[in-house]
């Protein structure tokens, strides 16, 4: 089953929740709205033709060009993407889901964007969502234990956001 047929089926089942697609990309992806994410993931995992039982990776990508001169040429509005790479150990196929979020919730700087957790669908998501929260600053609603995982508990900021500023010192250790 190809990306196209998944897309048709998903559009039929969840009209309005599928907000975009790119089937000509190297890895064809389907864009899902945050409120439809859990339903779509449950469907993709349990549907006998899809059977996406393995969640390979969750990545957070921050789209922001801090340099105002370059920002005009980028061709995108600042936003954050959460990318889900799925595959199936039975059917041996892969699929990419994307959720596009504003960089800050309600455009209030400091308010992390929110997306529902899928850690009850795939257990892998538990640690991956913690990592995305830690490094890319996305809040996963309903996650059982959303703590930092790679950085220390008292770390400030989310290092993989493009507007992150390196701390000058941490507990007396010089930063740069």
């Amino acid at each position: 089953m190809s990306g196209k047929s998944f897309l048709d089926q998903l559009k039929k089942e969840f009209s309005g929740k599928i907000t975009g697609e790119n089937l000509t990309a190297l890895d064809p992806w389907i864009e899902v709205s945050p409120d439809g994410l859990v339903e779509v993931c449950e469907f993709l995992k349990n549907d006998p033709a899809a059977q996406f039982d393995l969640l390979n990776c969750i990545s957070g990508v921050d789209y922001l060009e801090p340099d105002p001169k370059k920002a005009a040429k980028t061709g995108w509005e600042p936003h954050t993407e959460v990318v889900y790479h799925l595959s199936s150990t039975v059917k041996k196929h892969t699929l990419v889901l994307k959720v596009i979020l504003p960089r800050w919730k309600d455009d209030v700087p400091g308010q992390l964007p929110e997306v529902p957790t899928v850690s009850h669908v795939w257990r892998t998501a538990d640690w991956h969502e913690r990592e995305v929260y830690d490094l890319s600053g996305v809040h996963f609603i309903g996650h059982p234990d959303l703590r930092r995982i790679l950085c220390c508990e008292d770390w400030v900021g989310h290092p993989l956001r493009k507007d992150y500023e390196m701390p000058l010192e941490y507990h007396g250790i010089r930063g740069r």
């Binding site: 039982d53 393995l54 969640l55 390979n56 150990t89 795939w122 257990r123 892998t124």
Partner: peptide
């Protein structure tokens, strides 16, 4: 359980 936790390779 192995698949749900995303275990791969010799563990899977």
């Amino acid at each position: 359980m192995a698949i749900s936790y995303g275990c791969t390779g010799p563990v899977l």
